[in-house]
């Protein structure tokens, strides 16, 4: 086995083990295993509409995945992506509902402003968690998680309160935006391609930032040894804030694209678990930037495919999350089981 092939072999082992564990879980839940997997594959890839839905899920996943690569590079557990998506969506909705499509600015500029606002919303929310870490010594796992719940509460409050539909508040979300403020769908397609293009651009940008720039090197230095970075005057606190800010801006952008490109309104739980799923995707790619898009795509297929489960097989759609978790855990095991022979002395 060559060095280059080793990760592939590990991935194969992990897949096989994940498959076995999944079969066990499905049998334990009394579900027909193969029919279930077939429904998921069909739901995620079976038709053009399904493929477009998968692409729509892939967009926020890749954006958040790229965003998380930046924070992981600085050794930050940015669990707050979920809330940063939500805040981005809230800012975008706030900006777009204030826009007047009939007069004033051209619709393209309104949209650009809306997306910029969404990035700002995510940035603010991430910086809050970052400053709690750098200035308040609160670990970002707790601040991020707490802020996720807060962002969710704020969005619920807006939907049921100040931004409620005329007449009655509804859990189905705010009023739909004017069609002029939707991200444009080119060539008669049912979905805008602006989101996916932005996501790929963000991913390439993040990869370039981390691999090719001095900033990327300083983030690696902060991850490796924050004390030594302080000693060299690299100001780890500032760099942590910068990494959090970049991550938050991209996650917020994902929220803005969900509002302007997919739902065309603010809905409760608009972040749709994409933030947590993206963390799993980054862990599955295990630090490899090349593997990240593939991991995001795979998870998007699972997420979209599982939506069919309650209807066709009367199963809970959370099976997607189960599969994603199993896959990451088996990969951890496959990665750790090999070097068992050379155990270090204490």
């Amino acid at each position: 086995m060559t060095r280059r092939a080793a990760p592939l072999v590990r991935a194969a082992w992990a897949l096989a083990a994940a498959f076995a564990v999944t079969l066990g879980i499905l049998l334990a839940a009394g579900a027909p295993p193969f029919a279930t997997l077939a429904v998921m594959a069909e739901g995620g890839l079976g038709s053009q509409a399904a493929a477009l839905r998968t692409l729509a899920a892939f967009t926020p996943l890749l954006l958040c995945g790229a965003a998380l690569c930046v924070t992981f590079a600085a050794n930050l557990w940015n669990i707050g992506v979920e809330g940063q998506i939500t805040m981005g969506a809230i800012f975008a909705q706030g900006c777009l509902r204030a826009a007047d499509p009939a007069g004033g600015l051209p619709a393209g500029l309104d949209l650009a402003l809306g997306l910029a606002a969404s990035a700002l919303g995510g940035l603010v929310w991430a910086l809050l968690a970052g400053m709690l870490r750098t200035h308040g010594r609160v670990h970002e796992i707790f601040s991020g998680l707490g802020l996720n719940f807060v962002a969710m509460g704020v969005s619920l409050w807006l939907i049921l309160g100040p931004w409620k539909r005329p007449g009655m508040a509804s859990m189905s979300g705010t009023e739909t935006l004017d069609q002029a403020l939707w991200l444009p769908a080119l060539g008669g397609r049912p979905m805008s391609m602006v989101g996916p293009i932005l996501a790929v651009a963000a991913f390439v940008g993040a990869a370039w930032l981390l691999r090719r720039t001095f900033f990327g090197l300083t983030l690696a230095a902060v991850r490796q040894n924050a004390l030594a970075a302080t000693r060299l005057g690299l100001r780890p606190g500032l760099r942590i804030l910068a990494a959090m800010g970049i991550c938050g801006a991209l996650a917020g952008l994902a929220g803005g694209i969900l509002v302007a490109g997919l739902y065309h309104r603010l809905i409760p739980s608009i972040s749709g678990n994409y933030g947590y799923t993206a963390i799993l995707a980054v862990l599955l790619a295990s630090g490899s930037l090349l593997a990240l898009p593939a991991a995001c795509l795979f998870f998007a297929v699972l997420t979209v495919g599982s939506v069919q489960l309650p209807l066709s097989l009367s199963l809970d759609s959370s099976l997607a999350g189960v599969l994603q978790g199993v896959l990451v855990l088996t990969l951890f095991a496959a990665r750790r089981l090999r070097p068992l022979s050379r155990r270090r002395e204490p």
Binding site: T218, A220, A221, N225, A229
Partner: peptide, 25 residues
């Protein structure tokens, strides 16, 4: 400039190359 007693723990970046140390310094 400060030279710490715990050279690896406070002074160096274990996973980075020596060249990267020069770039950072």
């Amino acid at each position: 400039h400060y030279l710490p007693a715990a050279r690896m723990e406070e002074g160096l970046f274990p996973g980075l190359s020596l060249l990267d140390h020069v770039r950072l310094a």
